[in-house]
């Protein structure tokens, strides 16, 4: 008689536990009251269970954000792990929402949970997508603007993973500048 042993399915653990946050703009409430923790996960399978269940970014209402951050880091400049950091920012035109927004955001998520930045993945705090009528934004946040080697490696790898052509330049901005300046006043600390 054949003897069958049933092996339990073991999910594939991620290096980090991640938290998904959702922001829905309600101007009658303070910013922080509009931010909700959706859930946490730490396996490949649980990531997909979540991703397959929630709305694609391109279907969100304008003013909404998704943020995916390492467990314990809140998706705001004020968090201790973010306050000395900055972001690699991808700005998209209105036309890119249908063509590239979901693809870029999924690629960003896969970079984060897959630890795509080699020895510098520890420098990564999370990623954010802002859905806005005037143009969507996607960013990867890192914790230290002064760690030039890490910031540049993350930026180059991220640009490659998004499949952006060499002639497209993406910029890294310090949160300290983003928090105090707006629009054209924000200087890129690095570009790749």
């Amino acid at each position: 008689k054949e003897h069958l042993t049933i092996q339990p399915y073991v999910k594939h653990p991620l290096q980090n536990r991640w938290t998904l946050w959702f922001f829905k703009n309600d101007k009658s409430k303070p910013w922080q009251a509009n931010l909700r923790l959706v859930t946490k996960f730490d396996t490949v399978e649980d990531f997909w269970a979540l991703y397959n269940h929630i709305q694609l970014a391109s279907r969100l209402m304008s003013g909404c954000d998704y943020s995916l951050f390492k467990d314990g880091i809140e998706p705001m400049w004020e968090d201790n792990r973010n306050k000395c950091g900055g972001r690699w920012l991808i700005t998209l035109s209105k036309q890119q929402r249908m063509l590239e927004l979901d693809q870029f955001w999924l690629e960003t998520l896969l970079c984060l949970i897959g630890e795509a930045f080699d020895d510098y993945s520890n420098e990564v705090c999370g990623g954010v997508i802002n859905v806005r009528a005037k143009g969507d934004k996607i960013a990867i946040w890192t914790r230290d603007t002064e760690n030039q080697e890490a910031v540049l490696h993350i930026g180059k790898t991220y640009k490659e993973r998004l499949g952006l052509p060499v002639k497209i330049v993406i910029g890294y901005q310090a949160h300290a500048d983003t928090a105090t300046k707006s629009g054209l006043g924000i200087k890129n600390k690095f570009v790749v």
Binding site: H12, V44, W48
Partner: peptide, 20 residues
């Protein structure tokens, strides 16, 4: 031992439960 996963590996799991 760092758990680094490339995109193809991760994408391979997107519908794993749908096919079981």
């Amino acid at each position: 031992d760092k758990k680094k996963y490339d995109r193809e590996f991760l994408l391979g799991f997107q519908f794993i439960f749908a096919s079981m």
